[in-house]
Every structure is written in C-alpha cells, then in structure tokens.
Simulated assay, not measured.
Amino acid sequence: MRMTRAEARERNRRALLDAAFQVVSRDGYRARLDEIAERAGLTTGAIYSLFGSKNGLVVALVADYLRPYYEEIEQAVPAGLDLLEAVDAFARYYRRSCDAPDARSGLSLQITLLDMALHDPDLGAQLATSIRSQESHLIALFTGRSHNGSVVTSHQAQRLTTALRALFVGLSQGVPLGLAPGADEQYFADAARALASGMSLIDHDADAS
C-alpha cells in the first residue's frame, strides 16, 4: 500500500530522531548533520525541512526522549495518594529507570546535552524551555494533593518538582558511576520523602503580594 505524504514525513522524522540519538549521544556539539542524515537514509535537506536547524533537531530529540518517560510517571503515580505517597511512588519509579536497558545511553545523552548547552547558550535556552514544558506533567501530578492538612498549589508543586529533579538527576548519575552505594528504591524514596517533608512549600509569591 502506498504511503501518504504525512506518513512518509513521520517516517523520515522518526528515522532522523533515531539517528540523531546515536550520533548526538556520541559526539555532542561536534555531531555532524551529514552523518545523521546518512544514518537515516536521507539528506541534510530533510533535516532542515523537518526541524529547521541542527538546534531544532536537538530540541525535538529531547522532547521525543522525555515524552514517554513523563507519560510512564503518570501511570506510576496514581491519583488518590497524598503528596508524600506520590513522591515515594515517583522516587521508586525513577530508581527503577536507572536499571533499564537504555539507562546508560540516556545518561550519556543527558551529559552530552549539558555540554552542548554550555557551548551554545541559544540551544541551552531552547532546551530549558522544552524540558520545562515536559515538566508541566510533573507539576500537574503533584498539584492538588493533600499535605499537612492543606492542598498543594501549582506553584508549590513547581518548587517541589525543581528540587526533586535536582535530587534524582544527581543520584541517577551516581548509581552507574558507583558514587551512590546502597542507593536502592528505598533510599531514593526516603531521600525524596525527606526532601518533600523538610523543604518549605510556602508559596512565597503569594506571601509577597
């Protein structure tokens, strides 16, 4: 059956994203568009047509990589849990992801993207915007949950999400490097609960107004 133009475009997009994951994870900011295109069986013109630029391709790559991850988190943290229970479930999911078959390639991509962002501030700003848009899923996941007799606001959930991301990124980098001995699911959950319990969830913006 003949492929429609939309189907062909999506197939080419998928091929370029898969090729970009391999090349960018290995070469970082030195990644060459001609090699990415060759691996995908396409031309560099297809990259510009679909993504606009090399930076556009990298930003799309990050969004593509993170999207299923955030969707899985929503499945791992069911409704009806209070805030600390939700944080516990999120922490355990995050720790399990450290043992996934693609965990090392994901860590390599994460470190490579940081290096690329440092070399190219414009790309860094685009990546930050893309990642923040994905993190809106997490903010929504924690918003409205009960905690200490009150309900978590979206601003409070945003502050918590920022802190949890810093905690988990650091721990997940330490696990494969041997810098987090004994950091099993329970450790991740205990650390996350302690952070959520101990940090001030006061809505500072509301206090200042």
Rank of each mutant, 00 (worst) to 15 (best):
P78G: 08
T112N: 03
A89M: 07
S97G: 04
A86M: 02
Y93D: 06
D102R: 15
D99P: 02
Q75F: 01
A89T: 08
E85Q: 15
R95K: 12
R95C: 04
I111N: 10
C98V: 09
L83T: 02
A103Y: 07
Y93T: 05
A100C: 09
S97R: 15
V77E: 00
V77L: 00
G80C: 12
L113M: 12
E85R: 13
L113S: 00
Q75P: 01
V77R: 00
L83N: 03
T112A: 15
A79G: 14
C98S: 14
Q75E: 13
E85L: 06
R92E: 10
E85C: 05
E85M: 11
S108F: 03
S108Q: 15
T112L: 05
I111P: 01
L107Y: 08
A91C: 11
L109W: 02
Q75H: 13
L84T: 06
D82G: 07
A91W: 03
R96D: 14
L109V: 09
A76Y: 01
R104S: 11
L107F: 11
L107W: 05
E85I: 06
R92A: 05
A86L: 03
R95N: 04
R92S: 06
G80Y: 06
G80Q: 13
L84A: 06
S108W: 02
G106T: 10
A86R: 02
P78I: 09
Y93G: 01
D99L: 12
L113I: 04
D82Q: 04
L113R: 01
L109K: 02
P78C: 09
S108L: 14
L84I: 12
C98F: 05
A76P: 02
R104C: 07
P101D: 10
R96E: 12
A100S: 15
R95Q: 11
G106S: 13
R95M: 03
A76S: 14
V87I: 13
L107G: 10
D88I: 01
G106C: 11
P78Y: 08
A79K: 11
L84N: 03
D82V: 06
A103C: 10
A79I: 05
T112G: 10
R96C: 09
Q110C: 11
L83F: 03
R92K: 14
R104E: 14
P78H: 11
A91R: 02
L83G: 03
L84G: 01
